[in-house]
């Protein structure tokens, strides 16, 4: 894990114009559970992030996300999800009005549930994303993007067995970034 983080930091630090930036985003997500599990979730999400890099090259982003929960999948009273993500962003500069980007990373999070044995279920995620920055000036830009996440949840303890669930999450979002 340390090697991965150091590697990502090295890549981003190699770019001479790298800058620290912060941003926030808001979006909607759809979650479909895999392995024939008939369960879906649709919710709003919000994200705060801090990154280091350039909007037309590489950057590394650390983000905290909040995901609303309107579904009752793990219990009759599933709560919101809170997550943390680390992603490497590769942006491109085609001398057009936008800077397309791709990103990949991973994350982890949890949601509180009301089950007899478990009160919290943790999850990990593998993240892929794409979108574009819309620069306003040197310091500000909008961000429009799509994220795909593959979530693996901690096993649900039924005493007789621990049942693990996985899901595909599609997120569409808009955001705003401030670069220093």
């Amino acid at each position: 894990m340390k090697k991965i983080i150091l590697f990502l930091l090295l890549i981003s630090s190699l770019y001479s114009d790298a800058k620290v930036y912060i941003g926030s985003s808001y979006g909607f997500l759809n979650e479909d559970y895999t392995n024939g599990i008939d369960a879906v979730s649709s919710a709003q999400m919000a994200k705060l992030k801090v990154g280091y890099g350039d909007r037309d090259a590489y950057a590394i982003e650390f983000s905290l996300e909040y995901i609303e929960n309107n579904s009752k999948i793990f219990s009759a009273n599933d709560k919101e999800k809170y997550g943390f993500n680390v992603e490497l962003v590769k942006a491109l500069d085609f001398d057009i009005m936008i800077n397309p980007f791709f990103k990949a990373g991973f994350g982890a999070g949890f949601l509180n549930v009301e089950r007899a044995i478990q009160k919290t279920i943790n999850y990990s995620s593998f993240n892929l994303g794409a979108g574009f920055f819309i620069p306003l000036n040197e310091h500000f830009d909008f961000e429009v993007g799509y994220d795909y996440k593959y979530l693996t949840y901690e096993g649900v303890d039924t005493i007789a067995e621990k049942i693990s669930y996985e899901s595909n999450v599609n997120v569409a979002y808009i955001g705003f970034n401030v670069r220093f």
Binding site: G27, Y33, A39, S41, I163, A172
Partner: peptide, 25 residues
């Protein structure tokens, strides 16, 4: 992206837990 936004925002929500809870042993 706006089209994706629309469809993603219009999803359903499961209302019954997929794993029944333990009531006793």
């Amino acid at each position: 992206l706006l089209t994706a936004f629309f469809f993603i925002a219009c999803g359903d929500n499961t209302e019954t837990p997929i794993t029944a809870d333990v009531s006793s042993i």
